[in-house]
Design a protein around this nucleic acid. Structure first.
Lengths: 100, 100
DNA sequence: TTGGAATATCGGAAAAAGTCGATATATCTT
DNA sequence: AAGATATATCGACTTTTTCCGATATTCCAA
């Protein structure tokens, strides 16, 4: 866990918003056409639409969040689904109370 | 609590290091000449020395951490002492597990 | 096997952050 | 009151981040 990388990933309004949405995907997104939203997460296009930024920007943001370990991704057909990585948030929470 | 501001404050190696030191000030700093280290914290000069960056840089970094609410400061005579604000870390930890 | 849809990558312009040296301010000492 | 010490602020330059449009890649469907 690279904490600095994680905090950089969290230092952006849109990325924080995305994480908030992905904490409760059913609440913020329509059911995914082909997959179970709770199983694989939400596809890039839906997140992009909701965020209202350029497609390339959102694709990169999701990649930043994933590289930091905060999201997990699954490619199914032409879609990439992103979902929250619970363990990372627990570890980060612990880091904050115990190390800094 | 402005979470974005907090995460930006945490997105810097030196600032993270400072917070780590201030979590256990007795362990990382000599006793303060004039004050109780556990009461008021550590003065800017000591932190600057340990961090090895310019005085103005450290002064600004401490100000950033304080504006984000992560540190509290006390001016006593010509010294400004900074100490960890425990409540802020607890609240942040909770935000991370509950909101994102 | 070609066209279309979803996503990823690249290159760049603008904005923000990092870091310094110089200088200002506040306070202590004499 | 003057010099010394600790900290804060300012201006400048460099590096990083933001966000876009254009293009590439991957995969599906006809």
């Amino acid at each position: 866990m690279d904490q600095l990388e994680i905090f950089k990933a969290l230092s952006n309004k849109t990325r924080l918003q995305i994480l908030h949405w992905l904490k409760e995907p059913e609440r913020y997104f329509p059911p995914q056409e082909h997959e179970d939203i709770n199983e694989v997460g939400v596809c890039v296009g839906q997140i992009q639409q909701k965020a209202g930024l350029n497609q390339s920007t959102i694709s990169e943001y999701l990649s930043i969040l994933q590289k930091a370990g905060l999201l997990k991704s699954t490619r199914i057909g032409q879609w990439t689904y992103y979902k929250r990585n619970k363990e990372a948030f627990l570890a980060l929470s612990q880091f904050i109370t115990e190390e800094i």
